[in-house]
């Protein structure tokens, strides 16, 4: 298990179940996701069964269970984006990447996350890829957007944020 997770747990000595969510957040912030080992270690630390820790973690959209990819993709499903057709955009991205929201592509390049509102309603429907915002995305734009990032990865270019 990651020594960094051990460090985090040491910051919560004698913690009880009411510390579960803060610990989950701290571990995810550090690791980028919640690994099985982390979930088990958190359970041991709080004397909670793994099923319970996992149950709580899966209740919230903010937690992910696969590592983030080189480019983290956020698809806004807020009201404005929804009205402008973000469901179809998400659908197209899931097909393009071959993973569902919450997943990471096998090559580790892209991880996909659905967010409630990105705060850029004027650009709806909006997605963010590795920190770059793409405004007014239509399903037919999706292959082109991702091809550009694949190209960038091949060139070993900068990942941006």
């Amino acid at each position: 298990m990651s020594p960094r997770v051990v460090d985090i747990l040491e910051r919560f000595p004698g913690a009880h179940r009411d510390s579960l969510i803060p610990i989950l957040q701290a571990v995810q912030e550090q690791e980028g996701f919640l690994s099985q080992d982390s979930v088990l270690a958190i359970g041991r630390h709080l004397d909670l069964p793994a099923s319970k820790v996992y149950g709580v973690a899966t209740f919230y959209n903010q937690f992910r269970f696969t590592p983030v990819g080189r480019f983290h993709v956020q698809v806004c499903r807020g009201t404005a984006c929804h009205v402008k057709g973000s469901a179809n955009v998400l659908d197209a991205i899931e097909r393009e990447l071959g993973v569902k929201a919450g997943g990471t592509t096998r090559d580790g390049l892209f991880s996909l996350e659905v967010v409630a509102c990105i705060g850029a309603c004027g650009l709806a429907p909006v997605i963010a890829v590795g920190g770059d915002f793409h405004a007014g995305v239509a399903p037919r734009d999706v292959p082109g957007i991702f091809a550009a990032y694949r190209e960038r990865a091949k060139e070993g270019g900068s990942d941006a944020a």
């Binding site: 099985q36 979930v39 069964p49 793994a50 099923s51 319970k52 820790v53 996992y54 149950g55 899966t58 209740f59 919230y60 269970f65």
Partner: peptide, 28 residues
């Protein structure tokens, strides 16, 4: 006193399952 299963996810996607939604055979 075992707690091998719990509710996972939420809303219409809720499921009763062992940790990590794995098989009962590797659960407690």
């Amino acid at each position: 006193g075992v707690a091998a299963i719990d509710f996972i996810r939420r809303g219409s996607r809720t499921l009763v399952a062992p940790a990590f939604n794995r098989g009962l055979n590797v659960s407690t």
